[in-house]
Amino acid sequence: MADIALDSRAARRPVRDASAWDRLKVNRDWLAVWFMLPAMAFLILFLAYPLGLGIWISFTDAKIGRPGEYIGFENYEWLWEDSIFWLSVFNTLLYTFVASAIKFAVGLYLALLLNENMPFKAILRALVLIPFIVPTVLSALAFWWIFDAQFSIISWSLRHLDLITENINFLGDVNWARGCVIFANIWRGVPFVAITLLAGLQTVQPSLYEAATIDGATKWQMFRHITYPLLTPIIAVVMTFSVLFTFTDFQLIWAMTRGGPVNATHLMATLSYQRAIIAGQLGEGAAISSAMIPFLLAAIMVSWFGLQRRKWQHGEAND
């Protein structure tokens, strides 16, 4: 009896060397990888895969509901010669550059104001966030009415003040239309910049200002040599995000102008949607959105390398 029992146990558990797999299972250095796997799977499935698929589609002539054939760079070659595409690139750059610059200036100004001691500080800070809270489509619709060709409240007021005789052609004139959509974008984006910079301002130690005051520094000198240098890392992050959001904006334009008048406010995102979804040319639309990637990468690189530099983190005299 005992022999039989011993035999069977030996048969069941043969002695063998630990395999690489066994080692991986217990290796502490690999533990981190196991813990990261779910997050990685999530990112690959919902970020990397769609991005890769988008780029792949841009090399095909896919239409909606129908897989396409591989056609190499044909879509890109076509876009290279397409005046509307280049117009949309110009519009996007103009929109991003002007809106981001003004958002930064106004946001910083607001942040500095809100950082002062004043009555109802908490309420005021909350109020600033309102444009950011309102769903974009709703605010876009409101702006659409404000800038309507016939029913604009601005035109109406000016007409009743006898300042103009005809309605201003807000969304029908190229320059006006560009100005209006940029204005709407600024209105919506300022709170994000302002509140984030305000958070940054709060981390500046008051003792620095006290020391500067004792040294006889003016307000401007305090801003220039204390506030601004200490704020740069936050500015880099905020402006990166702001540029990314602005560059990829879609809702505001689509609700206000649909890219009109005559494509003067078509951004790359809206043109991509029009060609891919409305007109069904998925491949071409994917090529337009893929063409946004280099611009976005450049924006990220600027802040990435900026953040690596000590000068940006600790003020400029501290390389």
Binding site: A149, E166, N169, F170, L171, G172, D173, A177, P261, V262
Partner: peptide, 10 residues
Amino acid sequence: SGVASWNDSS
């Protein structure tokens, strides 16, 4: 004036 900005509901 403004027809260049019109959509279907304008």
